[in-house]
């Protein structure tokens, strides 16, 4: 069971209080009607689904009800960071590759 740091409550909380909401940073196209069917499908359905570093959206459902982002390793389940909406991840697959960490 995961132990997740809520960036709004400022402390680690049990997974039972949260709900995962899929890949983070999937922005709705600003002009949907200008999108091709392929672009719309990409937005709706197609996901990175990496084996490794994954940026994902969670909501602190029974706590502060805020959505936030988690950078998590999908094999070790280690959480490398959590960050608020509107912020960018500090840890990415690329930054780890550069930093030599895995």
């Amino acid at each position: 069971m995961l132990h997740i740091f809520c960036p709004y409550c400022g402390e680690h909380r049990e997974e039972a209080e949260f709900r995962p909401k899929g890949q983070a940073h999937i922005a709705r196209p600003l002009s949907p009607e200008q999108c091709s069917d392929e672009e719309w499908a990409e937005y709706l359905f197609f996901r990175d689904n990496p084996r490794g570093i994954h940026h994902e959206l969670w909501v602190h459902a029974t706590g502060c009800r805020k959505f936030f982002n988690v950078t998590r390793h999908t094999v070790s389940y280690e959480i490398l960071e959590t960050y608020k909406m509107g912020e960018k991840p500090k840890v990415t697959a690329e930054s780890l590759a550069k930093g030599g960490r895995s």
Binding site: R19, K21, A27, R28, L57, V59, A61, R65, K66, F67, M85, G86
Partner: peptide
């Protein structure tokens, strides 16, 4: 309710 919050917090803050 969560749906409304989702859109508000992630897309249209």
């Amino acid at each position: 309710l969560e749906w409304l919050e989702l859109w508000h917090q992630t897309e249209w803050p």
